[in-house]
Design a protein around this nucleic acid. Structure first.
Lengths: 160, 160
DNA sequence: CCCATCTGGTTACCGATGAAACTTGTTTGC
DNA sequence: GCAAACAAGTTTCATCGGTAACCAGATGGG
């Protein structure tokens, strides 16, 4: 009850000018849309698709490497890997360098699946981001990476 | 088994150049960091904080209006509202125009809470986005809004 | 060697989130 | 007016994703 002291106007928080909110709003909108499409078309969830994409790029990888790269939790990675092995899309080969871990690689079927999905993924991206110039996209990408860096720097506890 | 036909190199999908992925990566990083802070400092979850912010801005609002504005599920809004009423931060006044719904408004305590949080939220934003010029921020904001629009347009099923 | 510590991965558990069913009140067509 | 369709909110239920506890193999002293 001792409040009416407004010394300075203070920059007034408006939720939809608030960047963390906007970022999350847009990201949820986009990933939600895409997630539904993966699910409907290929029966894949986002983490599964990410494994496929990363492994297709790298040839093979351990779960821990995938986790580090995508910042997905190791549990998430573990579950996605199990599902994909089950489905015949991935193989686990023993890793001689460390018998606790396995090297994940795509099966023939996995490569075929990747070959079917990747173009569609790029096409969705194109549809959503198509009206942007490549400069704009480059700017966006750079900004996002700088945000990552700033976030990690400002809050080191973010168990990196 | 009839595959080696690589007619064209095809734009090769690299996961961390893939915008939906980058967007989600960055967004999760930022919201995760901030969510932990809200939780630790004020015992608030993100949806709860959003209600507070929206209502502080609008003076009062129905749950459905809040849901439409933030795209949060009505269930999420309902639960957040219940928690905040319970906590004494919000009141529900009957809405004479429609007795199914209630008008949510901040209590005195709610306003005080908002007054404590808002500056910190802006400060976090400043810390994370501080190294950006205001042009860059404006660009980012504009790009995000255009992405929203493009997503909604390209996939109208997104129960708008 | 062998115990202590650490790390990759899995399992068990818990909270959060969304879809669907339901309740109550509103609207509309007859 | 009243039945049918509809909309705001709540409740129930299944699912997802994360933390914590756990298991097995690795590492490094003494």
């Amino acid at each position: 009850m001792s409040e009416p002291a407004n010394s300075l106007p203070a920059p007034r928080l408006r939720l939809d000018e608030f960047l963390p909110y906007r970022l999350s709003f847009t990201s949820n909108l986009v990933s939600g849309t895409i997630a539904r499409a993966y699910e409907a078309l290929f029966g894949l969830r986002i983490p599964e698709w990410r494994l496929i994409a990363v492994i297709a790029e790298a040839g093979q990888a351990t779960q821990q490497a995938i986790g580090a790269r995508t910042r997905m939790d190791k549990v998430t990675v573990s579950r996605a890997a199990a599902a994909l092995v089950e489905r015949g899309v991935l193989t686990r080969q023993a890793n001689d360098a460390d018998k606790r871990s396995h090297l994940l690689a795509l099966t023939e079927e996995g490569r075929a699946l990747h070959a079917r999905i990747a173009p569609m993924a790029l096409e969705w991206e194109a549809r959503i981001f198509g009206e942007f110039t490549s400069e704009e996209l480059a700017v966006l990408m750079r900004l996002l990476r700088r945000i990552d860096a700033a976030t990690l720097a400002s809050h080191p506890s973010e168990k990196a």
